[in-house]
Simulated scan of single mutants.
Amino acid sequence: MISFVFYLGFLLIFVIFAVYAERKTAAFIQNRLGPMEVGPKGILQTVADLLKMLQKEDIRASAVDIIPYLIAPLIVFIAVFGGYAVLPVNADFSGSTITSGVFFLLAIVSLDVLGILMAGWASNNKYSLYGAMRSVAQIISYEVPLGLSVLCVVIISGSLDLQQMSQMQGGGILSWFIISHPVLIIPFIIFFISGLAEANRTPFDLPESESELIGGYHTEYSGFRWGIFMLAEYGMMLLLSILGSILFFGGWNSPVSGFGEGVIWGTFWLLFKSMILIFIQMWVRWTLPRLRVDQLMSLSWKYLTPIAIVMLFVCALWKLWLIS
């Protein structure tokens, strides 16, 4: 129960600051002002937008299939939020301490496709359905290279336990998997690109594609229900960033052995590494244009997946060489 409250509270606070940070990042990259009127430097703009969203009327089209329409946002959010259950925040706090944490995380997060497809179909809107089908095709396609890149780390570490992986990377930056095992550099790049697609982040935001689909699978949603979809998107962004930090960058371990260790420091290092990855995701979003559908699928099946399969064998050979 404590873990649930901690993760939910942290996620809500993160989303408020992340939206503001993304607006400011976009403004800086594209030479715009960004929010600046509500509060000092516009820092309360996101809070004002949140209050406005909560007060909006829940408008529904008359032809929607009401039950799946209402349930869909909850399924998407619960699937994403469920992945936080196995994340180790520091040496003493790791949520559910199951030995197959990586498998559980990838399995439960993949269920968000059901909610997205349900939302598009129940909206009884062809644009929503197109957006849902795009999203399902995209998420399923990029789960393959994402899973293979994670499997590379599993082979190197010999464990599915995220807490155990973090403990194995103690001893400074030279002990982090991406440094001590340079064969994981390419799997990390594949993991990061696939993570952008999993979270529907630009240049992989085809499920929404405002210029083509109005709003994608959530076109018919408004107010708080629309907000749940956005909460799930930022939740997925944070989840994959924390997972990437644990798998490749030492998790809650300090970059300097013997310095900045302990429960509070461990939480700080994990979040610090995750925030850097989140900033890079925002940087990519406001720098690169959106891909076409054929380019999106081609990148996954023709490039990322074959490379990930090759790297799987390379990591296995590397592990055998280390053992011998």
Rank of each mutant, 00 (worst) to 15 (best):
V80M: 13
M118Y: 06
Y127S: 01
M230L: 13
I116A: 06
I186C: 05
G215F: 14
C315Q: 07
S157E: 07
V154P: 00
V150K: 10
K273V: 13
G82Y: 15
W321F: 14
I139M: 10
Y130S: 13
P88C: 07
I155F: 07
I16Y: 14
G172M: 03
F248V: 05
W269K: 13
Q295S: 01
Y142S: 10
L270D: 04
I309R: 03
E57R: 04
L243V: 14
L247G: 06
S245H: 03
G258R: 02
A63G: 07
E22Y: 01
P203L: 01
M133E: 01
K302W: 10
S254A: 11
F188C: 06
Y142M: 11
G215W: 13
I116P: 00
P182N: 00
Y221N: 10
I186Y: 04
L117P: 01
V183P: 02
V102L: 12
E261Q: 04
L312D: 04
Q169C: 01
T99M: 10
I155D: 01
I309C: 10
R290Y: 12
I43Y: 14
I307C: 08
Q30E: 14
V154H: 01
M236Y: 00
G250F: 06
L8R: 06
L11K: 09
Y130A: 15
W301E: 04
M230Y: 09
K56R: 12
L296H: 05
L162S: 04
G147R: 12
T305S: 14
T99V: 07
M36R: 14
E208K: 10
M118S: 14
L105S: 09
E261D: 01
I190D: 11
D112A: 00
T219R: 12
T305A: 15
L8I: 11
L129I: 03
M36K: 11
I108L: 09
L320P: 02
M275E: 11
P255M: 15
I67L: 14
T219Y: 04
R290G: 13
G9N: 06
E220T: 03
S141C: 11
L162C: 05
A91E: 15
I307P: 11
Q138D: 02
L247T: 08
P187Y: 04
A199Q: 08
M230R: 10
G131W: 01
E212W: 03
L304T: 05
L51Q: 05
G171P: 09
G215H: 14
M53R: 11
V263R: 03
V38H: 03
P289S: 06
P289H: 12
A26M: 15
P40N: 12
E212H: 08
A91M: 14
L87W: 03
M230N: 09
A122Q: 06
G250Q: 07
I173V: 15
R290V: 15
A132V: 02
A137V: 01
Q55N: 12
S96F: 14
Y20G: 09
G244E: 15
L206F: 08
S62F: 07
L291Q: 01
L44R: 07
G251I: 02
L206E: 05
L240I: 11
G120W: 07
E233W: 07
I185G: 10
R23F: 05
Y221H: 13
V5Q: 00
